[in-house]
């Protein structure tokens, strides 16, 4: 479990993280979502003690990261910028980290297999592709078999197969009761991987909600109808709480009725329908809506 309370990070006169408070619960995948520059990486670095907060606290299982006596056994972390010396082999990199906690070689070999780097474990990490480097970073994060796993943009640079692998892996780890906290700027990826979302923008908390709820918010009650009998149908649908807007010549946009109700009305009056489509905002649109005011760098339409 991760507890962040009033966490603040100031660089000069810029607030990168602004009094952020949230809790990441065990047993589910929590997505940390926000546009680039929203303060996600800074927050994660503060949780694992690499950056010192200007104010506030971050605790993992009730303790500041640096107060854990065997931190790699409690928390595994993958940071966005690769924390790997390119001149060292994957195996030596993992062995060096393992040595600080007397984690046995057998475990090093186990995580090498887990992330599928067996063939290249003896090669210099500098020769790795972005995706292989990402796998090595995940291996390092899992080295201590930690109860909490923090991953910054883990699917960056992975091929589709790798993305699916990470998704399955994280869901499995969460199912084992671990706390999984991963960041992304891609709503579409989060929708598939996460159970819960913490959304930030400009260093502030925007939303802390289950993915399902965002999905629900994204759904609207508008239904698009295409019919050659637009004028007649429009009259027949009219009623309290129903609004009908006309689009193109044969199009109606109806709110206040479900597509089933509209279909029934049309049949009852012998009207032909060419199309009957419930309108849904995509999750991506819902996310954009949520973060609209919080986008740090936005192209301005000329």
């Amino acid at each position: 479990m991760i507890d962040v309370t009033d966490l603040t990070k100031r660089y000069g006169d810029r607030l990168a993280v602004d009094a952020l408070s949230f809790r990441v619960e065990p047993g589910r995948v929590t997505g940390f979502l926000g546009p680039n520059g929203a303060g996600k990486s800074t927050t994660m670095r503060m949780i694992v003690g690499l950056d010192a907060p200007t104010a506030g606290t971050a605790r993992v299982d009730g303790r500041a990261y640096r107060d854990h006596r065997a931190p790699l056994r409690e928390v595994g972390v993958l940071l966005e910028a690769h924390a790997i010396h390119p001149g060292r082999s994957a195996r030596d990199h993992l062995r060096a980290l393992a040595a600080t906690h007397a984690i046995p070689h057998a475990r090093v070999e186990q995580v090498i297999d887990l992330v599928g780097l067996r063939q290249v474990a003896g090669k210099r990490a500098g020769a790795f592709s972005l995706g292989m480097g990402q796998r090595l970073g995940i291996a390092a994060a899992l080295l201590g078999d930690p109860g909490t796993v923090i991953l910054d943009e883990p699917v960056n640079g992975l091929d589709p197969e790798g993305v699916l692998w990470v998704r399955t892996l994280l869901r499995g780890l969460a199912a084992e009761g671990r706390t999984i906290f991963l960041s992304s700027h891609l709503m579409s990826e989060m929708a598939l991987t996460a159970d819960h979302l913490i959304v930030v923008g400009r260093g502030r908390l925007i939303a802390d909600l289950p993915v399902e709820e965002l999905t629900r918010r994204a759904a609207s009650d508008r239904v698009l109808v295409r019919t050659p009998d637009a004028t007649t149908l429009r009259e027949r649908l009219a009623g309290p709480g129903v609004a009908v807007a006309s689009g193109a010549r044969d199009e109606l946009e109806v709110s206040g009725l479900t597509s089933a109700q509209i279909g029934t009305v049309a049949r009852d009056h012998g009207l032909t329908l060419h199309e009957l489509t419930p309108q849904r905002a995509t999750l991506e649109e819902a996310f954009m809506e949520l973060t609209r005011d919080a986008v740090e760098y936005e192209a301005v339409a000329a």
Partner: peptide, 28 residues
């Protein structure tokens, strides 16, 4: 995991362990 059986307290970071880690880094 091969680690499950080992309590986390047996893995506490200590100076000899950090020294060993640095030795691996130096020669690799």
């Amino acid at each position: 995991s091969a680690l499950r059986q080992t309590p986390a307290s047996a893995s506490a970071v200590s100076f000899p362990r950090v020294l060993r880690s640095e030795w691996i880094k130096l020669r690799s």
